[in-house]
């Protein structure tokens, strides 16, 4: 218990929960690519997920881990803000400047949390259309998707938020391993580059989907 109250303990909790979510967003992004195949493939994939009884376990785990991640993150961020009551007039620059996204983790983390709630309201708890394939009635989530991504404002906002996800992952992925104590001069440099790649792939994938709907599928 003392471990979980310590800063390193909290950070290690954030690392583990963050890595779980990194895996989830990648699989979510990859699964969504079925929208490029067509409405039936996308809806059947969605039905396959929600009709599996294990979904409740997976959903509970996701909710629990995001809460642990967010609560620990907020507590650590408050501790960090208090650690420097008088701010600098200038920040490190030139050869001594760290990469910028690493300094803004709490900022894009908060944005992502708000986006996540909004995202769930829009899709998971959004309008229920139904469709029947091969005699099985299921949710027509594809129709809702096409509807939502007709709005240019929604598309722009969505893209902005998934770019934040990309930045968050690009630092968070590598950072998680360091927090768990896994570091090697050579492999960590590679892991660092892989973190950027991971963030880029996830953000890029999520950006391509609303753009596809807006410019191609929705027409």
């Amino acid at each position: 218990m003392k471990y979980l109250m310590s800063t390193i303990g909290r950070k290690q909790l954030m690392a583990v929960t963050g890595l779980l979510w990194s895996g989830f967003v990648l699989s979510h992004m990859a699964g969504n690519f079925l929208m490029f195949v067509g409405a039936e493939a996308y809806n059947k994939y969605s039905y396959f997920l929600v009709s599996n009884p294990l979904i409740y376990l997976a959903e509970a785990a996701l909710v629990l881990t995001i809460l642990v991640h967010a609560v620990s993150g907020i507590r650590l961020a408050i501790q960090n803000r208090n650690a420097r009551p008088q701010k600098y007039s200038m920040t490190p620059s030139g050869d001594k400047a760290p990469r910028f996204q690493s300094r803004w983790m709490a900022f894009h983390g908060s944005l992502i949390l708000v986006f996540l709630v909004y995202h769930l309201i829009t899709f998971k708890f959004g309008t229920y259309y139904s469709v029947t394939y091969d005699g099985v009635e299921m949710r027509d989530i594809h129709r809702l998707l096409i509807e939502v991504f007709q709005s240019p404002a929604y598309v722009v906002g969505y893209i902005f938020c998934v770019i934040a996800v990309g930045f968050h992952l690009s630092h968070g992925f590598y950072s998680s391993f360091a927090t768990l104590g896994l570091y090697h001069p050579r492999y960590s440099a590679m892991l660092n580059k892989f973190g950027y790649f991971y963030g880029f792939i996830v953000a890029g994938g999520f950006i391509s989907q609303p753009l596809y709907v807006f410019f191609v599928a929705g027409k």
């Binding site: 390193i8 960090n80 760290p98």
Partner: peptide, 21 residues
């Protein structure tokens, strides 16, 4: 680590700024 926390230092977010400075 306990003394560090009690003294009012923050925690690490792996920016690496410390090592650069």
């Amino acid at each position: 680590m306990q003394t560090m926390e009690d003294a009012g230092f923050g925690n690490c977010s792996n920016t690496g700024a410390c090592s650069l400075a």
